[in-house]
């Protein structure tokens, strides 16, 4: 992971937040009224780049995300934090176009994956979503067998066409998700019969089975107990060797444990981006400080 700058003294960047300079003029935080992004939202050679993205719900009635510019680097974990309803999940769902499924949701701006605009008219969302996998807040395995849960994706994408290939992809995916030892003897049992933590790891296995390049995680541990959470956090740490991961979380401890960079959202604005340690120890924006010190949120 590489950022342009440590972020303690943010420089204006070309399209990030050109006028975000007022930070720390004399050791003071940016005031609450200033909603421009502070910190460095861009990185060199990003996996995904978001430029000036606005999202509206209900056919323009609700402005859910306002002019967000944010990059996702290669092999990093980017954490997104913020109070409920701040737009972090909405942002995440823009990245694999899951917002397409919501009636009246309009996305403007530019989002690229390896330089390719994913909202270009000719882009097919099916291969895109195979490339950018997603793990949801509530574990949602298919009401089918464990084997079928993992094998389904590779099969529909033609990655594993016969039974032995599928067996292989099931095994490697479950191993990588750390679930293999627990389920290898009953792969034909229903996936919905597993415990919550196991189900979530099954969902992660299902996601990585189609060999994505980016994994989006929408509060993957919010429905889990601390032990399952720890297992999944370890898993995220391992997965970042192969994938770029963007994770939305309500737990600041989790963000600090798993991520290299953190972005703080507030009411649709991207307020601050920086290396995780800096954001949690020396935030630049008053709102960020309010949040991480527990004044609200």
């Amino acid at each position: 992971m590489e950022t342009n700058n440590s972020g303690v003294e943010p420089e204006p960047t070309e399209d990030g937040a050109p006028e975000a300079a007022p930070a720390l003029k004399n050791g003071r935080l940016v005031s609450r009224e200033d909603r421009r992004t502070v910190g460095i939202p861009t990185v060199d050679n990003p996996r995904m780049r978001t430029e000036h993205v606005d999202v509206y719900y209900n056919y323009g009635e609700k402005h859910a995300i306002k002019d967000v510019t944010l990059d996702l680097a290669r092999n990093e974990v980017l954490a997104m934090i913020g109070p409920s309803g701040c737009g972090k999940s909405t942002y995440l769902r823009c990245l694999n176009r899951m917002n397409d499924t919501i009636d009246g949701c309009q996305v403007s701006g530019k989002i690229t994956l390896d330089g390719e605009d994913i909202y270009a008219p000719r882009v097919d969302v099916s291969p895109l979503r195979a490339q950018i996998g997603m793990v949801f807040q509530k574990p949602n395995p298919f009401p089918k067998s464990i084997w079928e849960n993992v094998a389904y994706g590779p099969r529909i994408h033609g990655l594993a066409t016969n039974r032995s290939e599928q067996d292989e992809v099931v095994e490697t995916s479950l191993k990588r998700a750390g679930l293999w030892e627990e389920v290898k003897d009953h792969l034909q049992d229903p996936g919905t019969g597993l415990s919550g933590g196991q189900q979530q790891r099954l969902c992660i296995a299902r996601t990585i089975a189609v060999s994505p390049e980016v994994i989006l995680m929408d509060e993957p541990c919010s429905a889990l107990d601390p032990i399952s959470t720890a297992v999944i956090e370890d898993l995220i740490n391992e997965l970042k060797e192969h994938y770029s991961i963007a994770i939305v979380t309500h737990s600041m401890q989790q963000a600090s444990r798993v991520s290299q960079r953190t972005a703080y959202f507030h009411l649709g604005d991207l307020i601050e981006v920086g290396p995780t340690e800096q954001v949690f120890t020396t935030p630049l924006h008053q709102l960020t400080e309010d949040y991480i010190t527990g004044r609200f949120g």
């Binding site: 499924t101 099916s126 291969p127 979503r129 195979a130 949801f136 389904y152 529909i156 299902r206 189609v210």
Partner: peptide
């Protein structure tokens, strides 16, 4: 449940699938 639809779309099924 919508979670099943999201799960299917999330791994890149087409709407028909």
């Amino acid at each position: 449940p919508p979670s099943i639809r999201e799960a299917a779309l999330g791994i890149g099924s087409s709407k028909m699938q």
